[in-house]
Design a protein around this nucleic acid. Structure first.
Lengths: 199, 199, 199, 199
DNA sequence: TATGAATGAGGTTTCATTCAT
DNA sequence: TATGAATGAAACCTCATTCAT
């Protein structure tokens, strides 16, 4: 009823159109070869309209990245909160991460793949994820379930491993996401070493 | 002695000057904000001279990356060849990688850090490293020392873990390279799990 | 009373709102940095509404200038008509000009200050003022009261002197308008020369 | 002989080419409708070359204005220094100003005409000229030759009168520069009043 | 071989104007 | 009549590459 709402709704829809178009174009051309004109054309709007919604090209790409990172963090946080044991936390957060990558393959490639780390926001995101994992690791160590030298370093390493492997996976077509999930989970919990020695 | 040789030597020296200058500028400004003019100035030569040695900017950055990757691969290969057991191969190649990162901090940041994966050559390098590790893993599995689902996936994951952690380390100043090495080795062999349960 | 009148009155009021807002914005940002969007916001209306009242940006700024020039000319004309002698005409028209500048400082700065002469309308206005002054000068010369080489040139020069000095005055805060008036009047009638030599 | 000199000479020649082309284009199209591309074409060079010599469009127009103002000030200063009496100083500096305007008609129109005052540098220049004149006026007053209320205000007014009249003259073709000079000199010394009353 | 001024295609960004509601 | 999101032409500026010296 209120006119402001109608305008506002339309504006928000256009904003979402731009974000989705940007995701597609960025995934297609990469973070540095994507031109604003390409994105505008993909969204089927004028170039000026992009600047009505985002102050600079930088701001647009940051919005794409931030949008993705926020959704991913929500997903992983919810998964982690749904279980109790630290081992389960590792399992389900890995599962959530892989499922997200599977459902958002193109944009995942943009954000965590080639050139993704170029943006501060990705680094901040990795730091956030690492902080969460560090807490779980510390808890596991306290419970005598985990053993790591430095929880902080280990967390950083595990985030690196997961994102790199998923970025690699997202670039090719020969591996199922389930295999990736199994690999991450197994390496995280046991590394490459045998754990059945006494069996 | 022959004049041709003297010219050739001078030419090679200039080429090396450019490569070293490029490493510094790339590390300083990043892969996309580094201008050819910056590199020429850092090398204290004219811009035109750069184009006498490298056909395009792309060729120059690839040369920087390739130079680094080649030296790194030599180092790791030699280390790996110096020992027999698969566990030792993991240990010494991790050690070699970390020492190289320590000795080539700036350029390591360029090649494996933010935006590094943007270049095909880095991806090819990661694939090469992964292939070597995959062979070691397969050998270890055959010996009953290692246990992994897919050696190929695990190798990719371990390369990702190592390079990401080292890239992170190279950006900051609070962690010693030895801690990093210990973390990578431990996670690779055991993950975060306890392996002394029966002890 | 008639509906048409009410609409008409409202329309005229909006038009005046836009003109006043334009004066403020133009004075604030200058003739070339003032955006239509700025003016619309200052007037608290939509940008589209501006175009219901003025066909182009040019038309709006011309309206601002013309409005000011018209009011100024009315004021000066009335003053000039109120006295008889040519010397008094000089005195009172200078006085009227200064009082107008004092009462319309911001818009005076726009119209006669920096960049003002960019618009044809200002040049036409100066020509109109100059024509009036020229007539007074010619009359004074005929009466043997004034002595000038070319009344046309002198008129142009006097208009330039007055508007420039007032534009300068309008930009700063250290001089009273009365001093300015005295200066213009004195220079117009006597220049910098002593006129009391024989006294 | 020294290569640097040859490069430097060529560079300076291009710089001058650009400045001259800019003067022509600015005079032709005005300070705000002149595009960098127009100037580059007029100078018969690439657009990039303009930016090799001037950091921004603003810097280029400032250079044009500053160049003109500097030459003008030199001319007037030299003229003023060549005579002793304050009345002669008024005469010869007016003469120098008019001759400069005559010899640099197009660029004079740019700098002191429509839109010229938009640039700070023009305002600063007017202030400098006014300061010189103020000193002469004060000297004349001390000698009992001149009579003004405020030397500062009078100086500002006289600068305004001269530049405005010359800008007007530069726009049209019907008046000789000598008439303009005579008018400025006469108005400056005597205003419009008769000074021969007692004769 | 070395130089660095010159080039110009191509990118980002602005803003007067339009038009569907 | 009023609105403000949308438009796109056109401007500024960058920088990899060339070329005359």
């Amino acid at each position: 009823m209120v006119p402001g709402n109608r305008f506002e709704r339309r504006k928000q829809r256009t904003r979402q159109d731009i974000l989705r178009a940007a995701e597609r174009v960025l995934a297609d051309k990469g973070l540095f070869d994507a031109k604003i004109a390409d994105i505008a054309e993909e969204a089927d709007i004028g170039v000026g309209t992009v600047y009505l919604h985002f102050q600079t090209k930088e701001a647009l790409t940051e919005a794409v990245v931030e949008d993705t990172v926020t959704r991913l963090k929500d997903t992983v946080d919810r998964a982690r909160a749904s279980v109790e044991s630290v081992v389960d936390k590792v399992r389900v957060s890995t599962q959530a991460l892989c499922r997200f990558a599977h459902a958002n393959r193109a944009v995942f490639r943009v954000v965590f793949g080639r050139g993704g780390g170029y943006h501060d926001i990705v680094r901040r995101a990795q730091t956030m994820f690492a902080a969460d994992i560090e807490r779980t690791l510390a808890e596991g160590v306290a419970q005598g379930v985990f053993r790591v030298g430095s929880a902080a370093l280990a967390a950083q390493a595990l985030v690196g491993m997961s994102t790199q492997l998923l970025a690699w996976w997202a670039e090719q077509d020969t591996t199922s996401i389930d295999e990736v999930e199994a690999t991450i989970t197994h390496l995280t919990l046991h590394g490459v070493g045998r754990t059945d020695e006494g069996v």
